Every structure is written in structure tokens, then in C-alpha cells.
Amino acid sequence: MKAVHLLVAIFVLSSSLVSAYDPSPLQDFCVATNETDGVFVNGKFCKDAKLVKAEDFLRHVEAGNTSNPLGAQVSQVFVDQLGGLNTLGISLARIDFAAKGLNPPHTHPRATEILFVVEGSLYVGFVSSNQDGNRLFTKVLKKGDVFVFPIGLIHFQLNVGYGNAVAIAGLSSQNPGTITVANALFKANPPISTQLLTKAFQVDKSVIDYLQKQFWSDNN
């Protein structure tokens, strides 16, 4: 009986580990399509393999427009922008920063991110979970530096140089998701209860009212 319990425990653990990340492909490619006829894999319909072209694996990414309140623009190359990524478990983003531009605190619920600085100087960091004491890990990165943000943890990038900056982020999911903390809390639709936020942040109601009335820029 103990052996059976052990096998069940191993099966449950294995299933949890496997389902925690994008599934491994069982074919060379499964290019996502907007058509609703065909094989449905990982949230996307697959294009007929005989109709797949080299263009299905190509996307050109221009410099982002940083003329927004944050002074930064994230140009995503997720599966919605590049169908050839479907089932491959990876994606990418280009981040352009004006001087003092900020990619605000956010998380990727389904991916670890690895950041490569192409140009400029960035102050970056992430915060560990409650269980690890909410420790802040930060570093100032220069051109050529690489930094990793563990999956699901809140992180940010701030341009601390005097000119523009550019970084490339690789992510371990075809659809990593992005949750910008301020937007999620103060721009939720419908709004989160003011009473709840007041108690959560231990501040006066007027502070929450003020924050909910602000325009929270989306730089994605």
C-alpha cells in the first residue's frame, strides 16, 4: 500500500512540474493561425504544415515610441505577434528607453526573463516572495550585461543614463503574460473596492481615490 501511495505522489508531482511550463512540441512546428479549423494546440489553431512559409517565423521589430508618461516602450514578440513561436516555449521583447525612462514594476506569471542591455545604462531589480522576506535584488547594468528575473516575481528597469537605452528580453514562454502592478491595482475593470485597497495599504481613502483617478500608462 505504501508503494501505491508513493507512486501516486510521484505522479502528482510529475504532473505539476510538467504543467508548470509550456508543453514540449511533438512536431517540428505548429504555426499559430487565426483560422478556426485544424489542430488546436496550447490555445492556438495550427496552420496546415503544407502551407507554412519562412515568413511565419519572421518579424521585424522597429524602435519603440518612448513619448509616453513612462518614457519607455515594450515591443512584444509573443505568439500573438509571431505565429511561428507556437508550442516552442520562448518569446522576446525589445524595450526602448528615453532618458530616465521606466519599465514599471510588473510580473510575467508564466515566464522567467533574461535581459540583455544593447545600449545605455539600466538600474534593474526584482523582489522575492513573502516566504523569502521580500528581498530586493538590484544592479546597474551597462552595455553587454545580462540579468535574470525569476518567473512570477515583480521586477523593473529604469534608464539611469543621460541618453537613450535599449534592451532585449528573452522569456521562457510563448505567451508569458504581463501584469503591471499599478495598472492591476488601480486600473482594474471594474475597479477594486476602495475599502479593500484602503485597508490593504493602510492609507486614507483620499489616497486611493487619487490613485484610481490617475491615468496609468500601458507601455506594452
Rank of each mutant, 00 (worst) to 15 (best):
R135M: 14
S129R: 03
D145E: 08
K100T: 15
F147I: 08
N134M: 08
E113C: 06
T112G: 01
F97S: 08
F97G: 01
R135H: 12
I114R: 00
F147S: 01
F137R: 00
I95G: 05
N134F: 14
F126N: 03
V148Y: 00
G125F: 12
G144H: 01
K142I: 05
G125S: 08
L115K: 00
P104S: 13
E119Y: 03
S121P: 01
G101K: 04
P109S: 06
L92Y: 10
P104M: 14
L141K: 02
T138L: 03
L136T: 14
E119H: 03
F126Y: 15
P104W: 11
R94D: 11
F149R: 00
V146D: 04
A111E: 10
I95K: 00
F149N: 02
P150K: 02
K100G: 03
S129D: 15
L141R: 02
V118F: 00
P105L: 13
R94L: 15
K143M: 12
F116V: 13
Y123Q: 12
R110N: 12
I114E: 06
F149W: 07
V148K: 04
K143V: 13
K100C: 07
A93Y: 04
L115D: 12
D132Q: 15
G120V: 11
F137W: 05
V148A: 09
L92H: 06
V117C: 05
V140G: 01
V140K: 00
F126K: 04
V140L: 03
P105F: 11
E119D: 15
T107K: 05
V117K: 00
P109F: 01
D132A: 15
E119K: 10
A93F: 08
A93P: 02
F147R: 00
V117P: 05
P150L: 11
H106T: 11
V140S: 06
K139I: 09
D132I: 13
Q131W: 05
H108T: 11
S121M: 13
N103Q: 12
K100V: 09
K139G: 05
N103L: 14
G101Q: 12
T138P: 04
L136S: 09
K139C: 05
G144Q: 02
A93T: 14
V127A: 07
G125E: 10
F97K: 00
S91Q: 06
P104L: 14
D132L: 15
P105K: 03
K100Y: 11
